[in-house]
Design a protein around this nucleic acid. Structure first.
Length: 484
RNA sequence: GGCGACAUGGCCGAGUGGCUAGGCAGAGGUCUGCAAAACCUCGUACGGCGGUUCGAAUCCGCCUGUCGCCUCCA
């Protein structure tokens, strides 16, 4: 595709992406609730939207990327018998709720940094926007879309004829569902809480016109997105499981409060599964990213680097489920190692040579065509493998394209800036030159030994270096080394 | 029960009405003192049953299976 198209959940179709304001994109993605370590599912979601932000910027859009931090614990349901997860965790760890939130906010960003996920431009905290949320609830009350009930405030879904437009759910259908409980003071089972009354045992609470309490789950995203991106903005993203009720409720609140469209494009990433089951915190089958990075989990036989996790995720489409297995990770690791090696060779080659001109425009068009088709990273990677292998063959045989500088520039922009892959091998930065000098000497001595057909010495050098993690590779133009 | 997805070769995983996805693993070969790397060649896959079509893995219907949402959740 020549122009960017995205799959919009709202219309269930791929649409040409045209921002509301030319050249600018406002994007909001639902962030984590910070009461536990981020797991592979978070990685799938945030790597996916990271790619989307990076690609939009590559295309020249000025993007403002907002991703909330939910540091208010929400109940497990809208009835009054649920647990507050942050509160539960704070009791378990014997810490203040804000200590819990602070700690897991820190680990969240630490793990995302490791995955090379760029930080959002704004990471608003729900607790830092209580007044904005209260103001929005008041607006909804004024317009007759909400009603107070014994210190609680509920959104009246029957007041919104559009309710259900995102998820395709109709109110009477939801009512017949077996799992909808009616809270005592709700008018309609589908009504959802905007504000919840807190009793004295509830640790996180704020004063409000309706008495002490805390905000409902959905209102924070409506309040914070409109504050930083305006009442109507371009992209709202999040995990597929949040489509209903969370995003549906966000739309209802925002559109009823503001009287205008909320979001132009809704993008949803699919789930990570483990043995075919969704990976989730509350399901107890989540493997945290730290556990992947350290290998410290019963289901893991070894550690896996963040770069491998990222590459593994990029090999499937963000709207497809990604089934996790160590076998799949292993394949991804080998594939990444290969691609990295190719890129490394190309990026280290001279800026120009005697080889034929390389058609960078064709390659760029091919890569963009894939990314323009709803961010098809899997195909973009296939293009890289396809086109770069022959190029490496040319380069290693001395046929460096005359416009190699141009090639390197494109590769850097696409693989480093857009895909977020590391283009060079993991050579320790410190003392690299001295190490290189030493290795060059060793290689020279080994070359001498080989010349004298002293195979035992040559092989001893190679084996001992290999044992130290340095691979010697003999080629027609001499030997090179790679550090694993 | 309601709504919605998906089912691809040993594994992962794209995709289009007819033409090679790609990665990983595997087999054979070239090169090499050996090894590694690289390069060349190789699998003719699309859940089942019907239908539309000159032609379908790709469109339609039915069936089977798996999963997601309907409760906190990326």
């Amino acid at each position: 595709m020549e122009k960017l198209h995205v799959f919009n959940t709202l219309t269930r179709s791929k649409e040409r992406f045209v921002p509301l304001q030319e050249g600018f994109v406002g994007m909001y993605v639902c962030g984590p609730t910070v009461y536990g370590d981020a797991h592979l599912g978070h990685a799938k979601s945030y790597v996916s939207f990271d790619i989307i932000v990076r690609y939009l910027r590559y295309l020249g859009f000025k993007v403002r990327y907002v991703q909330n931090i939910t540091d208010v614990g929400h109940l497990t349901d809208d009835a009054d018998d649920g647990e507050d997860k942050l509160q539960k965790q704070s009791i378990a760890e014997r810490k203040e709720p804000m200590e819990i939130a602070e700690h897991y906010t820190y680990t969240y960003f630490r793990d995302m940094d490791a995955l090379n996920v760029l930080r959002p431009d704004i990471s608003p905290r729900a607790t830092g926007h209580i007044p904005e949320q209260i103001a929005m609830i008041e607006q909804l009350l004024e317009k007759g879309h909400a009603y107070p009930a014994d210190g609680n405030v509920y959104f009246d879904v029957t007041s919104d004829p559009d309710y259900g437009k995102l998820s395709g759910r109709k109110l009477d259908e939801a009512e017949s569902g077996t799992r909808v409980n009616t809270a005592g003071d709700k008018r309609n089972p589908a009504d959802f809480a905007l504000w919840k009354k807190a009793d004295s045992s509830h640790l996180m609470q704020w004063p409000s016109p309706w008495g002490p309490g805390y905000p409902g789950w959905h209102i924070e995203c409506s309040a914070m997105s409109s504050k930083y991106l305006g009442r109507t903005f371009d992209i709202h993203g999040g995990g597929l499981e949040n489509q209903f009720p969370h995003h549906e409720c966000e739309i209802a609140q925002s559109e009823c409060a503001h009287g205008q469209d909320f979001v132009k494009y809704w993008l949803h990433n699919n789930m990570v599964t483990l043995n075919g089951q969704k990976m989730g915190k509350s399901l107890g089958n989540a493997i945290s990213l730290q556990q992947f990075f350290t290998g410290n989990h019963p289901l893991l036989t070894r550690s896996w680097s963040p770069a491998v996790i990222r590459f593994f995720l990029l090999q499937s489409h963000y709207r497809s489920t990604t089934d996790f297995s160590e076998q799949a990770l292993e394949a991804a690791e080998s594939g990444l190692k290969n691609l990295t090696s190719i890129l490394d060779t190309l990026m280290k080659s001279p800026d120009t040579g005697k080889g034929a001109h390389f058609d960078t425009h064709a390659l760029q068009a091919e890569l963009e065509a894939q990314m323009n088709d709803d961010f098809n990273t899997a195909r973009a990677l296939a293009v890289l493998f396809d086109r770069l292998k022959p190029l490496r063959t040319a380069v290693t045989s001395g046929q460096i394209p005359v416009n190699m500088a141009e090639v390197k520039d494109l590769l850097s922009r696409f693989t480093v800036d857009v895909l977020g892959l590391q283009q060079t091998e993991n050579i320790p930065a410190d003392g690299t030159e001295k190490l290189d000098a030493a290795l060059q000497l060793i290689i020279e001595l080994r070359a001498q030994a080989r010349k004298e057909r002293d195979w035992p010495t040559a092989d001893l050098i190679r084996d001992r270096l290999a044992a130290a993690g340095i691979r010697i590779e003999d080629g027609p133009a001499g030997s090179t080394y790679k550090i694993d």
